[in-house]
Design a protein around this nucleic acid. Structure first.
Lengths: 235, 235
DNA sequence: CGTCATTTATAGTCAGACAAAACCGTAGGG
DNA sequence: CCCTACGGTTTTGTCTGACTATAAATGACG
């Protein structure tokens, strides 16, 4: 028994499969992918399932269908790169170095500002949850699954504390990507520097309501992650 | 002949219709929307079309379907708020004040940083295109459709000049929302202050490769837009 | 009163058919 | 010789109707 952790409906699996193929460049922009009937037959599902999967990809800006013309991969500029699913799909292959850099550049823009906001408008409830995540990280360590989950949550709570819905949504997207880069780092089996003290600095800054310190701590945190990731990519 | 601007397939129209209903709160998070058969019958289309529309909404994180349980609107935190379509849908009603504020807060975080980057890494090609957009704006004025299009393009080119794919994708999203807020401002028929001189300041800063000036000009620009929008919302 | 089997409503999947659109090669005219 | 107009043909778009799988709700039983 293979312990199928989650029973995805078929259209979801197909969307994932084709989505990864597009995101990793097997179907480059401009390419026309096989007809619906071919796709259905080759995956052993019905045409309806394939069509629903294609609609999902179209909703993310990946493809564009027209009668007789077929289904074409749209230009990368039209892709919804901030979509969490798409972001995850891109990391299923070896993501291009440039893309990883873009990601860190975005984090460097958004997260320090978010930390600043969070330090201003955090509630006691947020502080409590942050503290809890902090404890879990310190006890379980960042190499354990639960520690990593707490890490994710830690950053999500910060964005949540900003009270800005759009930033919260970004949280989901960036979180998906960070989770992927983390997997990536561990694939290459380097021992990483311990980022827990930096997390604690950030936690303290937010608790004390010190925006400048929160910004500084976040910048340090991201820089370290970036260095670790890039050294992994080269090794 | 009514010049039907674009012949949308049916599933797209249905997705738009249901999407707007959800985004504007007619189906609040947690609500269960009518069964697929009901939806199909009430809109006069087949169940396949409805299902494809629902898959599109699911791809944007709006809904979640399970057999017997029906299709439920997911929590707002799960929505893909940065999706350009969804963003546009939210502005089809009267967007909540808090949401407009979130949008400007995000712009205030992203766009100054982007302008800074653009001032560093712009190419002569970008400068040329920016200059062209600038001219169109100055000749046509910001109240004309072509002037507004040039305005959109102006900001898109800046983000493009950053060379960061994720920021470019954000450009599409923010652009969609800004276009909506612009419509919004004009609905309320106030005369807005002329932002063309500010645009020219920004253009000059980027052309000269002056990151600090580019950042400052962008901040001024956004602040003015925010004030105009908020005064419109109150009037 | 709680646990487990049964019922049953709903999404999920399938098959086959027809409609509509638009690309492409061809034929006709300038 | 080129350009235009026209069909034919391929592919997505839509419809229909049926069956399956799932899980919520219900009722029986300990």
């Amino acid at each position: 028994m293979t312990e199928q952790r989650k029973r995805h409906p078929a259209h979801q699996s197909i969307a994932h499969e084709i989505g990864v193929a597009i995101a990793t460049g097997r179907y480059p922009p401009g390419a026309i992918l096989p007809g619906e009937l071919d796709l259905a037959e080759s995956r052993g599902v019905s045409r309806s399932v394939v069509r629903e999967a294609l609609r999902m990809l179209a909703a993310k800006g990946l493809i564009e269908s027209r009668p007789k013309a077929g289904t074409r991969v749209r230009a990368r500029a039209d892709w919804n790169l901030l979509d969490p699913d798409l972001l995850a799909w891109m990391f299923e292959g070896e993501p291009p170095m440039a893309f990883v850099e873009s990601l860190f550049q975005l984090r460097m823009i958004v997260e320090p500002a978010a930390a600043e906001l969070a330090a201003r408008s955090r509630s006691t409830r947020h502080i409590g949850r942050l503290g809890h995540a902090m404890e879990v990280m310190e006890e379980a360590g960042l190499s354990s699954p639960e520690g990593q989950a707490a890490d994710q949550q830690f950053h999500n709570i910060i964005l949540e504390a900003t009270g800005n819905d759009l930033l919260i949504s970004l949280s989901g997207s960036i979180g998906a990507a960070v989770r992927s880069t983390t997997l990536f780092k561990h694939r290459k089996a380097k021992q990483l520097r311990d980022s827990i003290p930096l997390h604690r600095d950030l936690f303290t800054a937010i608790t004390e309501g010190n925006p400048a310190a929160a910004r500084a701590a976040t910048i340090t945190l991201i820089l370290q992650a970036q260095e670790d990731t890039e050294s992994s990519l080269q090794g």
